[in-house]
Design a protein around this nucleic acid. Structure first.
Length: 425
DNA sequence: TCTGGGGTCCTAGGACCC
DNA sequence: TCTGGGGTCCTAGGACCC
């Protein structure tokens, strides 16, 4: 059976989420900012047309924001996560063969639907998602994931396709590939595109026709896979079940410079709690804790950054132990006299709880009283909202917390913030 | 004043072993 | 004057993705 992939990609996802609950934003320029209100991470089409680039710091486009009255929002992950879930649930109605690739993208297998007109079917999917969730999507269809990505790109750039493009229906795929810049190919980032340009390769077609040996030498086997996928040879399969994470990172920039060890300890304890929660949700334990901290590299002031790694005596998912070791590491690295901008932790050496070898001398996390305690806390926090139960060492005031000055309400996940349609009759 | 956060995979090189 | 070679494991760094 011929494999056919569909790639469903939400248009300007974060902006679209804001628009669902605030229709006045339709056809207006809108941007959504990263954590700490730092960079532009989502732009409406109107903003893209103004030339605001993805990822630029917001202070660099202050004038444009003012001049064009761009609506600015802080990231509202509670809202985006919930809207993403709704989109994915809708998609799951159409096929069981679904890979949730990111918060706003999913690959699906259309191999079983080849008797249908796939473009028509894609439009049906697209319209249903719009109707059920309010989110506009584009759909690309192709014989490999990379070509489905290309098709999606074409669907987005050319309004005449109404958001759905099936590359296999095009008689001359090479003509299409010749119109795609090599930097727009999935898997070709900034460094590789610079390198390829220097070597006379500017389009997806030229990349497709590059010699295998040369590609493998300079872009590794990963690059070669991309090239084969452009040729129509499917090398990247659909991954329906997300593999457990091999590393869990939790880090955030501070809302203001932090100078005391006490505050850094609060932040680190907060990050560890979050990471450990994720760790437990995939039924894993970690063997290794890394802690890092750094000053603001953009500032002209004394710089210091460092990290430390600690192997745990036994792999665990018990937050108090993880916090203890993280704090020990932090204490070793901390140097007074610096203005710290960011700290974070990473859990690695991740094993499944079952898989951990039972050690006859030291007690293991699974099963244990600690595990039951963690489970109870996780359940309370899942039901009543995160941080309902938290660790005192994680701080109460949390003055270092990030800024989010322009956040929209959590319309769909918090009772107090649900939109009110009518207050009286 | 203000520059995100969380992941994956691959390769090269060093340590160590037989 | 001679100073092997191959395999494995680990880590750091660099590329990519959203």
């Amino acid at each position: 059976m011929k494999t056919i992939f569909g790639l469903v990609d939400c248009n300007n996802f974060y902006v679209s989420c804001e628009r669902v609950f605030n229709p006045k934003l339709e056809e207006k320029p809108v941007i959504v900012l990263s954590n700490n209100d730092g960079c532009v991470v989502a732009r409406s089409d109107e903003v893209k047309a103004l030339g605001v680039k993805m990822g630029i710091p917001v202070f660099k486009c202050k004038d444009l924001i003012k001049k064009h009255r761009i609506h600015v929002y802080s990231s509202n992950y509670a809202l985006y996560g919930d809207m993403s879930q709704r989109v994915m649930d809708t998609l799951a109605q159409f096929t069981p063969d679904l890979e949730i690739y990111s918060i706003d993208e999913a690959f699906l297998s259309l191999s079983g639907f080849t008797s249908l007109n796939l473009t028509q079917y894609g439009k049906h999917i697209k319209n249903t998602i719009k109707k059920w969730t309010g989110i506009p999507v584009s759909i690309g269809i192709g014989p490999t994931k990379t070509l489905a990505k290309v098709a999606n790109h074409i669907a987005k750039k050319n309004p005449q396709f109404e958001g759905v493009f099936d590359i296999t229906e095009h008689p001359q795929i090479d003509v299409l590939l010749d119109s795609i810049e090599v930097a727009d190919v999935w898997g070709i980032g900034y460094q590789y595109s610079q390198f390829l340009n220097q070597n006379g390769i500017y389009t997806a077609l030229q990349l497709k026709n590059a010699p295998d040996k040369w590609i493998k030498k300079h872009l590794t086997v990963v690059g070669l896979r991309t090239v084969d996928e452009l040729r129509g040879i499917s090398c990247i399969p659909l991954e329906q079940v997300a593999p457990p994470k091999k590393g869990i990172i939790s880090s955030l920039s501070f809302g203001r410079p932090v100078e005391t060890l006490a505050e850094l300890k609060e932040a680190v304890a907060t990050y560890v709690s979050r990471a450990a929660e994720k760790l437990r949700s995939q039924k894993s334990v970690a063997s290794c804790v890394h802690v890092f901290l750094t000053t603001n590299r953009f500032k002209d002031e004394p710089q210091y950054s460092n990290y430390a790694t600690f192997w745990l005596p036994i792999p665990t998912a018990y937050t108090p132990d993880l916090i203890h070791y993280a704090h020990q590491n932090l204490g070793k690295m901390f140097k007074p006299g610096y203005r710290y901008k960011k700290a974070g932790i990473m859990l690695t050496g991740i094993l499944s709880q079952q898989q951990v070898q039972l050690n006859l001398i030291t007690p293991s996390y699974h099963p244990s009283r600690e595990k039951i305690l963690m489970k109870t806390i996780d359940q309370i926090n899942a039901r009543w909202g995160s941080d309902t139960v938290k660790y005192a060492v994680a701080g109460i005031q949390r003055l270092w917390k990030m800024r989010q000055s322009k956040k929209s309400p959590r319309f769909t996940t918090h009772w107090k913030e649900i939109p009110v349609v009518r207050t009286s009759f």
